[in-house]
C-alpha cells in the first residue's frame, strides 16, 4: 500500500511539475483528456464523424507543418501524399483483400515513396519555384488516374472499400489515438536534433551546409517523414469514407492544409492540430447559415491572420506565458522570476 502511495505521489509530482507548470501544456492535456472522454458525454454519430475527420485532417495538416513549417520547403501540393496513400490503400483492400490495419501502413509507405519521387527533383528549387513544382505533382497524378480508369476508377473513384472498423465508436478511438500518438511523435521529431537541423535549414541553408551538415539528406528526410504521416491520414480517410476519388488529390485539399496550419500557428505541430479542431467543426456549425458559410469562414481566417499573424496558438501562448531571457525556458505570464534559474522575467 505504501509503495502505491509513493508511486501515486511521484506521478502527481511529475504531473504538477511537467504539465500543470505551464498553461499551454495544461490546455493540451485537458484537450487530449476531453477527446478521450467525449464518447462518455455523447455518442451522436454526426459529432463523432466530425471529430474523426478532424483527427484525420489534423494529422494531415501537422505533416505539412513538419515539412513546410520546419524546413521551409514550401509544398503547395501536399494532397499528393494523401491521394497516393488513399489510392494505394483502396486498391490493396479491394483487389488484394488486405485489411485496413495493413493497407493504411502500406499506403503510408507508398506516400513515402512519393515523397522521394517529389523530393529528389525538387531539391534544387527554392521559394516560389519549389511551390509551383510541388503544385504540379498532384495534377500529374490526377491525369494518370484519368488515363487508367480500369484500375483507378477514373472520375468515379474506387468505392466498396472496407470500413475502418465495424463501429463508429471504434473508428473514433482509432482516429483520435492515432492523431494524438502521431502528433506526439511529430512534435518529438521537431524537438530533437533532427528538428533543430530542419529549423536551421529554413533559417539559413548555406550556414547549415557550411557547418558540415548534408542538407540534401535532411530535406529528403523531411519530404519522406511528411509523406509518411500524410499517408497515414490518407489511408485512414479512405477507409472511413469508403471511397478513393480524384478529390483526394484536389488543390483545395492542399490549400486547406496550409490554411489550417497558418491559422493554428506555423512550425509548432500542435498549432495545425488546434487549427483543424477549431476550423473544421466551425465550418460544420456554419451549416446553419449555408448562404454565407464560406464568407464567414474566410472572414474569421483573415481576422485571425490580421491580428494574430503567427497563428492562434502562438498568440495565445505568448499571452499566457513568458520566455526566460537567460535560460530560454517558458514560464507562466504571472511569474516575476524564472521557475528554474530565478532570473527576472520583466
Amino acid at each position: 500500500m505504501g509503495t502505491i502511495s509513493i508511486y501515486i505521489g511521484r506521478l502527481y509530482k511529475d504531473f504538477k511539475g511537467g504539465i500543470l507548470v505551464l498553461p499551454s501544456r495544461t490546455i493540451a492535456f485537458f484537450f487530449c483528456l476531453l477527446l478521450l472522454l467525449i464518447p462518455l458525454i455523447t455518442t451522436e454519430p454526426y459529432i463523432l464523424r466530425v471529430l474523426i475527420l478532424s483527427s484525420i485532417f489534423a494529422i494531415f495538416a501537422a505533416s505539412w507543418d513538419l515539412l513546410s513549417g520546419y524546413t521551409g520547403q514550401m509544398n503547395f501540393g501536399h494532397a499528393l501524399f494523401f491521394g497516393v496513400a488513399a489510392y494505394t490503400s483502396a486498391l490493396l483492400n479491394l483487389h488484394v483483400g488486405l485489411p485496413p490495419w495493413l493497407t493504411i501502413p502500406l499506403g503510408a509507405l507508398a506516400a513515402v515513396l512519393a515523397g522521394l519521387i517529389v523530393g529528389v527533383p525538387c531539391l534544387r528549387l527554392r521559394g516560389p519555384y519549389l511551390a509551383l513544382a510541388t503544385l504540379a505533382f498532384p495534377l500529374i497524378l490526377t491525369g494518370i488516374i484519368f488515363v487508367i480508369p480500369g484500375i483507378t476508377g477514373g472520375e468515379l473513384g474506387i468505392s466498396g472499400i472496407d470500413p475502418l472498423s465495424g463501429s463508429r465508436l471504434t473508428d473514433y478511438y482509432i482516429a483520435v489515438i492515432l492523431m494524438l500518438g502521431l502528433g506526439f511523435v511529430m512534435w518529438k521529431i521537431t524537438a530533437s536534433k533532427t528538428g533543430l537541423i530542419f529549423h536551421a535549414i529554413r533559417e539559413d541553408e548555406v550556414a547549415v551546409r557550411a557547418s558540415g551538415i548534408n542538407t540534401t539528406r535532411y530535406k529528403l528526410l523531411a519530404f519522406c517523414l511528411s509523406g509518411l504521416f500524410a499517408g497515414v491520414a490518407g489511408g485512414m480517410y479512405v477507409h472511413f469514407m469508403r471511397i478513393a476519388g480524384p478529390s483526394t488529390l484536389e488543390l483545395m485539399l492542399s490549400f486547406q492544409a496550409i490554411i489550417w496550419v497558418i491559422f493554428g500557428g506555423i512550425a509548432t505541430i500542435y498549432g495545425p492540430i488546434a487549427g483543424v479542431f477549431i476550423l473544421y467543426p466551425f465550418m460544420e456549425f456554419l451549416r446553419i447559415i449555408p448562404e454565407i458559410r464560406m464568407l464567414v469562414f474566410a472572414t474569421l481566417v483573415v481576422l485571425i491572420l490580421l491580428f494574430m499573424p503567427e497563428g492562434l496558438t502562438t498568440w495565445v501562448r505568448d499571452k499566457i506565458e513568458k520566455e526566460c531571457p537567460r535560460c530560454k525556458l517558458r514560464n507562466i505570464a504571472t511569474r516575476k522570476s524564472c521557475r528554474v534559474c530565478r532570473a527576472d522575467l520583466d
Partner: peptide, 19 residues
C-alpha cells in the same frame, strides 16, 4: 457542398439522417 468537397457531402448526409 459536393462541388467543392466530397467529405462535406458525406458529412451533410449523416447530419441530415442523425440530426
Amino acid at each position: 457542398n459536393e462541388m467543392l468537397s466530397v467529405t462535406d457531402a458525406a458529412t451533410a448526409m449523416e447530419m441530415a439522417i442523425t440530426v
